[in-house]
Design a protein around this nucleic acid. Structure first.
Lengths: 341, 341
DNA sequence: ATTTACTTGGTAAGCGCTTTCCACACATAT
DNA sequence: ATATGTGTGGAAAGCGCTTACCAAGTAAAT
């Protein structure tokens, strides 16, 4: 049924080798007349090469595998945009899979992608920080690397490999300084999932920033979310209940910050007059919500670009690491602390 | 370097065939002792099967290709979420690519995906409606289908194949009726790109709805956008300039509607008091912007689920088509027409 | 005219796997 | 005792392609 190279060759009256050389082998020269015959035959038979077979014969297949937490999440979809941009230019196909932060599933995908012999693997979305998981993953990664695979991590610390990571600590630190400067003393924090390195860094950066100005972050002012909008809503209500005297809220990502705005609106608390709110990432809608969200910009597209670029560059001896600066973006959702009633 | 089946077989002291049967062939039974030996060898050698080779030998490879306009766009990322959900359950890998609505690029990807012998192809995002393009694409699709490939289109009309499409016409019609009922007589429309079937359907549905209540849609009240937030902003300004007496705006998708809200805020026009705004799709943020957006809900995840389900089901004789109902969602951005000053 | 050196097309050996036969052993039936 | 069947392992033929390697033809050099 399917046309293959052999049929094209036969149709053109040349050998398999010649047909292959005309259609793919860039190196060898083929006489113009034969070349034309092959091209014509391929055209006529509507030949589409079998990339699987090519990959098998060559041992390299121009596919890069990417595992993200959830590509519907704007954070990851921006990263993917960066990855795709570079991939397209380099004529690489990208296989994307969502781990939904399930370690099992993530391992499964890495295995599957490895099975498909992707040239490189990009793991985005900080991984769980448990030793058991990290070790297991590191082991998988190792066998992949040993067979010539390239691996790039975005925002991971625990797994060896080339890394590109945003300065979560610094950004959170900056935000803390800014909050302190506005006069806030009691601040609520909505974190990401407990075991993520991202959560850890954003929390510690913020805490350090506060400490530097003599403010302590109380445990009861910190609640855990899961980076989703709904968890932002829930966490805000919880915060307002257990720590009613906070004057500002820092959500570990913009999506949850949007949830916080929703919750505050439900309670009739005005932003920024009665409550300051800030997020993290600077996703596209951050400036379109009301009030526009103060946040820490993470160059998400750039993260993806850097990662893909590293993934395509040949392996180096040591482990490379690229850091991407983050930047405080002040918008309407933050303001000086409200005078006590 | 890489461990392959041959090495595993040798290590276990069995033949290639036996090793293959233990690790993959579900049909044949292998004695427990041999089976154990093979499994142990595979484990020890950290064997990861080569999916390319398997696909070549079998002729089916558990990969589905998807071409969307831009997966950063919430509309498509929701569709992808639905696709992924089904794919994961069916143990299929998904290769996603962005066409950015460039016909050339789209054709290129279809070809590439075909080359990789994906089992099925899902084309999401309505295609350009030019005959030349449609014909070219249809031809590509045909050779893919002839070699056993499955094709599912989401929201396309011009290309033959199984289709799942949202009721764009009906939703827009409903919205028009609602607008008329609120008392709006002069309405501005921000459309999607001119040649898309989606744009056509949403525009005609809306127009029909208005006509049914005796309202005509003037050409100068219709401006073209490109589904992006910024084009929504620009189009709104243009609309306000060339048709200052409109009392409502219908943007062809929520993203542009958000842009409209931004533009109106810039001009100090209140929504919904001075201007009613509605979008289309009901993307997640629609209810989080201020005011919450009135829109027509498109079951995006469902679209993806249906498409993937069709893609995985065996081909049928004729062309199947699934229609997904859309639903008017009334929120705060729409209201009765403002009294004239 | 003969040797040397390129060109350029073809032959065939894989790439890593699946799967059809085949062969063998053992159990059951005659 | 032979004939028949049944389960199980192995040999080998591909799947569609790339790419050494070889052979022949042609051009350049002696």
């Amino acid at each position: 049924m399917g046309t293959n190279l052999a049929k094209v060759a036969a149709h053109a009256g040349v050998s398999l080798a010649t047909a292959s050389r005309v259609l793919n082998g860039g190196a060898r020269v083929v006489t113009a007349s034969l070349r034309a015959r092959v091209l014509a035959a391929a055209e006529e038979l509507q030949y589409v090469p079998n990339a699987q077979a090519q990959a098998l014969a060559r041992a390299s297949n121009a596919i890069v595998g990417v595992v993200v937490h959830d590509m519907s999440d704007p954070y990851f979809s921006e990263i993917l945009r960066g990855i795709q941009r570079v991939a397209t230019n380099a004529n690489r196909l990208v296989i994307t899979s969502n781990s939904y932060r399930d370690p099992e599933r993530e391992l499964e995908y890495v295995r599957l992608l490895h099975a498909h012999r992707v040239d490189a693997l990009i793991l985005a979305g900080s991984g769980l920080d448990t030793p058991a998981y990290s070790q297991h993953m590191a082991q998988h990664i190792a066998v992949f690397t040993n067979t010539g695979g390239r691996v790039v991590l975005i925002g991971r610390h625990q797994i060896p490999g080339d890394t590109v990571l945003p300065d979560n600590f610094g950004g959170a630190y900056q935000l803390a300084t800014y909050f302190a400067q506005l006069g806030h003393r009691r601040i609520g924090v909505i974190t990401g999932p407990a075991l993520l390195t991202t959560t850890h860094d954003r929390l510690e950066g913020f805490r350090s920033g506060l400490v530097a100005t003599g403010i302590v972050l109380h445990d009861r002012d910190v609640v855990t979310g899961d980076f989703s909008r709904d968890s932002g809503v829930a966490a805000t209500h919880q915060l307002l209940t257990q720590a009613p005297d906070i004057t500002a809220i820092f959500a570990h990502n913009d999506v949850m910050a949007v949830g916080a705005l929703v919750a505050l609106r439900q309670r009739g608390i005005t932003v920024p007059q009665q409550m300051t709110v800030a997020g993290f990432d600077d996703i596209p809608v951050a400036e379109d919500v009301t009030p526009a969200l103060t946040t820490v910009r993470v160059p998400m597209v750039e993260l993806g670009v850097q990662a893909m670029t590293m993934a395509l560059s040949p392996a180096t001896d040591g482990v490379r690491s690229v850091s991407c600066a983050t930047e405080l973006v002040i918008r309407a959702s933050s303001g000086v602390v409200a005078p006590r009633d």
